[in-house]
Design a protein around this nucleic acid. Structure first.
Lengths: 142, 142
DNA sequence: TGTTTGTGTTACTATTTTAATTACACAATC
DNA sequence: GATTGTGTAATTAAAATAGTAACACAAACA
């Protein structure tokens, strides 16, 4: 189903609510309702992308590498989605057919124009926004 | 890899270039470089969505149900992508955690706002546009 | 009328992605 | 040096996707 983006956003929102206090992969896993090793794998990617850091050892855990207001959903998406393709194009159509010969490049151009717009929208939302939404929902529900 | 959208667009562009002359699944399959049965499965979905029709029997095949200028990539996307979700949200986070409890609905709202923009972009491009791109590329290459 | 061409659908297999789980060397803290 | 916790590799399981074969049925046409 590919929920990597959603899970990564969950992790970052969780870290944001921790407000500078390190969170262990086990704690995060209990919020996501999965397995610590899976969380660590996600964190490893997020750390590579410069969005999180970790403190080793006892009392350690993961932290946001910068304020949640400066981490956008586009940052998350790019960190977690290897090829960064929202829509993929089939390979190997028949080069002897006028349509088959061009469809790949034509479609890639058209699709990437759409993706640029999508990415721009993703860049407008931050982890701080998401956390604010969560707080609001909890406030309203309480 | 999920290339359903791309293959469906390929099929429709191909039908558009046929200019009202029915195309058999075998002919289309040779352009896409795959299997007639797979093409027929795609066509079945496109027909259900009202984008194509077929003529049975000898000399039969698939046809566009309306002009390519009135079939948008959004029509194609909706015809072929069952759930219509560009980005999916993980299910079953921990309801006893303030973040886990709200992340699902918050993320769905934020993501669907982004998707609306994406869909609007997809609706701006038609099969006629794609075919025009293909013709231009072939003209320039020749 | 019966042969041919081609659809629509089912059932099945193979491949690829994705997620889940286990295991363990290593790091830092107390 | 015991404990807590990371990072990563290896494995298994599950789900999504694509590919293939088979066949009843429909229309055309000789």
């Amino acid at each position: 189903m590919n929920t990597r983006f959603a899970v990564a956003t969950h992790i970052l929102a969780f870290l944001h609510t921790q407000d500078g206090f390190p969170a262990s992969s086990e704690l995060i896993a209990s919020s996501v309702n999965t397995n610590p090793a899976l969380i660590r794998r996600h964190l490893s990617q997020l750390a590579k992308a410069g969005l999180t850091t970790s403190q080793m050892g006892s009392g350690g855990g993961a932290l946001l590498a910068r304020p949640g207001s400066r981490i956008s959903l586009l940052d998350v998406y790019k960190a977690v989605e290897a090829d960064g393709k929202l829509i993929s194009v089939h390979e190997g159509p028949n080069p002897r057919c006028p349509v088959g010969r061009q469809i790949e490049s034509v479609l890639k151009d058209r699709v990437s124009a759409v993706e640029i717009v999508t990415m721009r929208e993703l860049s407008k939302v931050t982890i701080a926004d998401v956390t604010r939404d969560i707080d609001a929902a909890n406030g309203a529900a309480a």
